[in-house]
Nucleic acid binder design. Structure first.
Lengths: 251, 251
DNA sequence: CCCGGGCTGTGATGCGCATCACGTTGTTCG
DNA sequence: CGAACAACGTGATGCGCATCACAGCCCGGG
């Protein structure tokens, strides 16, 4: 039943929840749904979708699928975080995109009928719903409006990808790339507090480097420098930052 | 009727063909159609599509749409070549993608209902069909199978974009990026001849630099070097290259 | 025809960042 | 609770490529 491989052992819904996760049994109850492809669906359609999905729980750094495999279905990240990476033969890999709760994994490859262009791996313990390819395709054919929403969704993904390319290619320096990345994160997940914008932060310097195309050491040095200049302040696993000042640093 | 702005003057189908282009009157006769989104459509569907499209001719380096504008329709590049670029405030721009005859321009923004994320500009004289947004949306709603093909198409675009990111980020040197770019072009448009693979070549060193993120001078130097090492040979506006050797150079 | 503007080749110079190297601080286990 | 390992901080060094500078080149237009 399961196509996914995992570094760690695999676990299935309805077992006693491991990894400290609470399992959401029904898509209709899922708080993440509002943000996704499947928002604004009729109750009836929702029920249909609920019928054809299976749920699994994964630990952190579990591999959902690997670049080059053929897709056997669609993954929905119900909770937790994941990353999409692309590797070279020599083993290095870049992070193409971070994926948050409510987002889909592997949609484009499934739709295009081609092999996965990236590897998906969880960053935190995560609940993941799986919809087998056949059933999803039948669902699409019987719900033309959803097909259009899929197209919309893919368009937005494409734009994000271009945005990323712009970030990487147009920034004059690594310093600027890092500053812009922080600002982007602040925009997406930041909460404004009196000290500045607070951003949760569970990513190693190594991984940040793989996003902006820099070495671990450079990321380390730049972050130190940002701290020294009071552009950011680290508290536990959160970063407080002052958007205006940081933007200025992103020459 | 026209939304496009252009550095040069605008011209409309049925006028005496300027820019040395032959005008294709009917989509069904278009040789580029086979490769596109609209291949394998029924004659009837094709006729419908033909009804709602308008054709225009543009000179080289005409701007079809600009980053930030709202899309007013879909462009189909019937003949010629174009590029998609993304710019920074400071005026620099990168080339996100080259677009060939038969491909679509602005599909993702139209579908997503968002403003253009890139600027489209012709590289050669080109014939362009235009389908107004409203009519295209109606067409999509009445042809659910086409909506799915649109999704497929967008998926492939997304994969190309990732492929580009991989090229840029994983290559160890500019030298390698350039070699890989040439190989990619050889794959897509190359014709194998006795001298090696022949690739048509109408792009300045400056523009190549904007694709791989390098300066004009570096591109110049690297190409010279490739010539010296007999990895490529320039003849007129074509490049002959030996894939195997070049691949080796792409350390 | 020759003149001017865009493209191209190639040197000299300097800076940014990868890389190596090593010490320090967490953090997860038996 | 301490061992073992991963993530972090920071110095020294060198290479790659941007940048500046200027000299041929090709082509179209007055």
């Amino acid at each position: 039943m399961q196509t996914a491989t995992s570094k760690a052992s695999l676990s299935v819904a309805n077992s006693a929840a491991p990894y400290g996760l609470r399992v959401v049994e029904n898509c209709a109850d899922c708080s993440a749904r509002q943000k996704t492809l499947f928002c604004r669906m009729s109750v009836e359609t929702m029920r249909e979708l609920n019928m054809i999905r299976q749920t699994a729980l994964y630990p952190a750094s579990a591999v959902l699928f690997v670049e080059g495999e053929m897709p056997r279905g669609l993954f929905v990240l119900c909770s937790g975080e994941a990353k999409l990476t692309a590797g070279s033969k020599q083993g290095e890999a870049i992070i193409l995109r971070l994926v948050e709760a409510g987002e889909l994994l592997g949609l484009s490859s499934l739709i295009a009928g081609s092999s996965y262009a990236a590897t998906a791996e969880t960053l935190t313990p995560a609940q993941v719903a799986f919809i087998p390819a056949r059933k999803f395709q039948r669902f699409l054919r019987t719900h033309p409006d959803v097909a259009l929403r899929v197209a919309e969704h893919l368009s937005m993904e494409l734009h994000k990808s271009w945005e990323q390319a712009r970030l990487l290619a147009l920034a004059p320096s690594t310093r600027s790339k890092l500053a812009q990345l922080l600002l982007e994160w602040a925009n997406e997940h930041g909460k404004t507090e009196e000290e500045g914008v607070c951003v949760p932060f569970h990513m190693t310097h190594e991984e940040i480097g793989r996003i902006i195309g820099a070495s671990r050491e450079t990321v380390s040095r730049l972050l130190s420098d940002f701290k020294r200049r009071r552009l950011i302040r680290v508290k536990g696993s959160s970063v407080y930052l002052v958007p205006e000042e940081l933007r200025a640093a992103a020459i």
